[in-house]
């Protein structure tokens, strides 16, 4: 088991290293002077701000130094938590901008991922080999999982927000309010949270339901199922065992889908102008704020790595094969 976690941690460490290296090298390997092109493309009018930024960025990039030194400096700054200064919200440090946005993204992502996974698995398992349910769940599930996240978000915003007027379609709370712990504010938060959450939940739900349905059908053909049936075990017991075995690949699937789910959350936030990381990304791109974009990238990567590690731990807890040192599927 120590070997299993050691391997995983090595991969995550290397991944982080690769991510940082990508971050460092992309501005340097693109043609032209990155500072100049960044400033000229940035939408900034005050000359003093431009000058301050030029000094700052030239220092930060350290372009007059040899490449290996630039690279080490980059790591040095990173380890101190310095991701540079945002252009969009000059002169706020990128780290601060991101830390303010992260809670909104997590508030959407974590419930959407967990609830869709639990509900999708239950529903998919229930539908498998039950003819009429299977015949409805399958097409609906495939349509949901094929839907681009932002399109479902747009549809929900349009139908329930604009046309029906039940839900607000922009922001995380009413613009008329000041953040506080008052019930009215919390209600406003919940109201603004619901649609983005629902659209994330629905798309992911379709994927899990289908995955589980297919896994259960495979499991119901497994040898241990045939043996139980030959000994006259109840249908309930057979299904329970099949579910327990089918859930393992679904846990691995959760790790594999993390990237897609995060991407879904980002575009969904953009549709609803929800002030999480997705919104930052859009602002960073529109304002040519590369430091903000790169900082967000690193935060997302770190988040995904942590989530992967949590899933690894869960997997070990539920699959006896990894615990006995026999390998297992993860």
């Amino acid at each position: 088991m120590r070997r299993y976690f050691g391997r995983k941690l090595l991969i995550y460490g290397l991944t982080f290293f690769v991510a940082v290296t990508i971050n460092w090298s992309i501005p340097r390997f693109m043609p032209g002077d990155p500072v100049q092109s960044m400033l000229s493309r940035a939408n900034i009018s005050q000359p003093e701000a431009v000058e301050a930024m030029r000094v700052h960025y030239t220092n930060l990039f350290g372009l007059d130094l040899p490449l290996w030194k630039q690279y080490l400096n980059f790591w040095g700054a990173l380890l101190k938590g310095d991701l540079g200064i945002s252009i969009w919200l000059f002169p706020t440090p990128v780290t601060d901008v991101i830390v303010r946005a992260v809670p909104y993204t997590l508030a959407l992502l974590i419930p959407a991922i967990l609830l869709s996974w639990v509900a999708g698995n239950r529903f998919g398992a229930f539908a498998a080999r039950r003819t009429w349910l299977d015949n409805t769940v399958l097409p609906v599930g495939y349509v949901l999982t094929a839907t681009p996240y932002m399109w479902l978000a747009i549809l929900l915003a349009w139908a329930l927000g604009i046309v029906a007027g039940i839900f607000p379609v922009a922001g995380a709370y009413s613009f008329a309010m000041e953040p506080s712990w008052s019930p009215a504010f919390l209600a406003s938060l919940a109201q603004h949270w619901f649609l983005p959450f629902a659209s994330l939940f629905l798309v992911a739900f379709g994927g899990w339901a289908i995955g589980m349905r297919n896994m259960i059908i495979y499991e119901l053909e497994a040898d241990y199922v045939h043996y139980l049936e030959a000994l006259g075990a109840s249908r309930r017991l057979v299904r329970r065992y099949a579910f327990r075995n089918a859930i393992l690949p679904q846990i691995t699937g959760l790790a594999l889908q993390l990237g897609v789910l995060v991407a879904g959350a980002l575009v969904t936030e953009i549709v609803f102008s929800y002030p999480g990381l997705g919104h930052l990304i859009l602002q960073a791109i529109q304002n040519q704020d590369f430091f903000l974009l790169q900082g967000t990238f690193l935060f997302v990567v770190i988040g995904v790595l942590i989530a992967n590690f949590v899933i690894d731990i869960v997997y070990v807890l539920v699959d006896p094969r990894t615990r006995t040192g026999m390998g297992g599927a993860a």
């Binding site: 241990y224 045939h226 030959a230 075990a233 017991l237």
Partner: peptide, 29 residues
């Protein structure tokens, strides 16, 4: 009537301890 299947190697549910599996099988009967 009972059977010892050809696939005895894979006839046991991999995610249950054997004692518990036997108990649950019997309970369901």
């Amino acid at each position: 009537i009972s059977i010892i299947p050809q696939y005895s190697m894979s006839a046991l549910n991999p995610t249950r301890k054997i004692g518990r599996m036997v108990g649950e099988l019997l309970a369901s009967r």
